[in-house]
Design a binder for these strands. Structure first.
Lengths: 348, 348
DNA sequence: CGGGAATTCTGTAACGATACAGATGTAACG
DNA sequence: CGTTACATCTGTATCGTTACAGAATTCCCG
């Protein structure tokens, strides 16, 4: 048993072979005889040598075997978001298959972007971050392949994701088709890193897409309310919706589109608390099709999109780029999931 | 704008200074004049040099600025577990404060533990893993500081966590105190990496602790049923509980202790589905105090423990070890959260 | 038994950075 | 003006590994 730190050289000397042979014993077993290899590994074990040092290896090879995920929100916040988790899940699956590890890089509160600049990664996935965020600038300077996963569309960076605006327009079409004429859009405030409000470019695109579709259909702008929840949480959604629902009935929207299921679930809570019947008196739509959406009361009508596939695709694209290959991001589509929170508007 | 990859040397030559000066421009601004520093940074920017290479730096410094989290379950599975998320949340918070990044290392399906051996980390946190898992062996060989976070107690590795068995005993005392005499324990199967069943030493310790407390109190073993859910999910918990509840009333347990809230929530679903009134006909207890526990119907009585603090403490302990300091793991305590799923057993 | 191939092993030279110990030059002081 | 102190900059020597290009050895076959 060796006590101090061992190195490849040490082992080589002890085994009476060249360092290269020790290296090969670990990395290219076919390049040396079985007997030599066994001797080397035995000596290594006796010395307490734990295998080639990752730092030395990654310097020499120019690869770290790691993909980083850049998160501008606080990590805790990210973990609280079901959508992010599904995306991560997809990334993790694809990474595991490729034998790569996943580095989480929070950029919040890191003014000089030391983590981004110093991260030991071969590639970076961007998500939930604004194109002009300093972390994005730092990421570009790294010179490693980048991909934007669902989050922002940034010039010059491959984008894997859905068309939020178009998908939200489909939600609008559904509600218009049911005959609704008074709408509310529940969205979130613009991101503000200083105030700790995470950027959600995708969510804002949904709000814009929904509004544009209403406008295109000739809906009177006076009959569209836009409400901002204080936060991207169910509770904030409930509070914001509660304000909507106190209005007298004829001034109330007959349909609410929440830019995410998390918010929509809050709307359902608020409606239940105010005794507003969903969907008879109020139609509610969300976006994401998170797991809870199928379990809510009533089950939520929403737009489903392949977040898991987004995560996988982002990794595939970026790992291909590391190898110098170019993979065109797949086209990812969304679809309407009809459940029980939308119906024709109540008769006058 | 430089096109090919730049290095510190390149920049030094272009700026007419020594490499050391360029290094200092980035790392020790106080070691050179403002004018030189500005010139160096300007030249670097012109050449498109993105700052010192993390690989070179971490080799030379012997530090990577990264802490790894070892997960023996599939990453997706980990993310699906609310307890794990809270723990991660705590880790992330503490890491962010220390300017460290977080590397997620899944060990499932990696027979030669290449990820563990090759991970660019200064320290490793172990969680949800068996002491004799090959990944643990590989981790030890790495020679980096280790800490076990909540998961397994392993000889020679600092442990941050709660006393699961003792805390489960407290649950038993609560139910005994209410007068229950017929019990069921809902647990999960032993982990089996081959079958993809993650190890949960903590959960099993809870079951053991609960059973030991009943035994110590003199409860007739015939009146204790032990049921294994197929999986650590709410659905599996519901199914397993459904089997319990089909028995005729006098043979049914009057109290169920589920080793986790996730399972306990499944029990509540099963009870609701079978028309069994909780807590009047059946008392149910969980363990963890996850967020949903407060929102279930009825709200779940459970054992609360500081998972978030566990995550933070694990990081503190392990980062201290990286610096050669020794920090004694704090003593983390649990407490009973009385909500509305436990009551006196029904009269005969 | 000679010659070419296959197998197995080894020296050399980086990968890109920083710790350390000086070497300059300049300011300050008695 | 000599000397010390300070600020600023530089040369040297690694950190631990692996790519590459060849030796040395063995093998096979005609």
């Amino acid at each position: 048993m060796g006590e101090s730190r061992q190195t490849l050289q040490t082992v080589a000397r002890a085994a009476g072979v060249s360092p290269m042979t020790v290296s090969n014993a670990y990395n290219r077993p076919d390049q040396l005889s079985r007997t030599t290899r066994e001797k080397v590994l035995r000596v290594a074990a006796e010395l307490g040598y734990g295998g080639p040092s990752p730092a030395g290896r990654s310097l020499r090879r120019g690869r770290s075997g790691t993909v980083g995920l850049l998160l501008s929100e606080q990590l805790p916040y990210a973990f609280a978001d079901p959508g992010m988790l599904t995306f991560l899940h997809g990334m993790a699956t694809e990474l595991a298959a490729a034998g790569q590890a996943l580095l989480l890089i929070p950029t919040a509160g890191d003014t000089d972007q030391a983590l981004v600049r110093g991260a030991l990664v071969d590639a970076l996935v961007l998500r939930a971050i604004y194109p002009d965020d300093p972390a994005v600038v730092a990421a570009r300077e790294r010179g490693v392949p980048l991909v934007s996963g669902g989050g922002p569309k940034i010039a010059g960076i491959p984008f894997v994701g859905i068309d939020n605006a178009r998908s939200a327009a489909r939600a609008a079409e559904h509600l218009l088709g049911l005959g609704h004429t008074r709408f509310a859009v529940l969205t979130i405030p613009p991101g503000d890193p200083l105030a700790g409000i995470p950027p959600r470019p995708g969510l804002h695109a949904r709000a814009r897409g929904f509004l544009a579709a209403l406008e295109a259909a000739g809906v009177d702008p006076d009959r569209i309310q836009v409400v901002q929840a204080g936060d991207h949480t169910r509770d904030a959604g409930r509070e914001a919706a509660a304000h909507l629902l106190v209005a007298r009935r004829s001034a109330r929207p007959t349909a609410v589109f929440a830019v995410s299921d998390v918010l929509a679930l809050g709307v359902l809570e608020a409606a239940a608390a105010s005794g507003v019947d969903v969907p008879r008196q109020l139609s509610v739509m969300g976006f994401d099709d998170i797991e809870e959406a199928a379990r809510s009361t009533p089950p939520l009508t929403t737009i489903s999109h392949p977040l898991y596939e987004q995560g996988r695709a982002a990794v595939r694209v970026v790992l291909a780029a590391v190898d110098g290959r170019v993979v065109r991001p797949p086209r990812l589509t969304t679809h309407l999931v009809l459940r029980e929170t939308t119906a024709r508007p109540p008769a006058r």
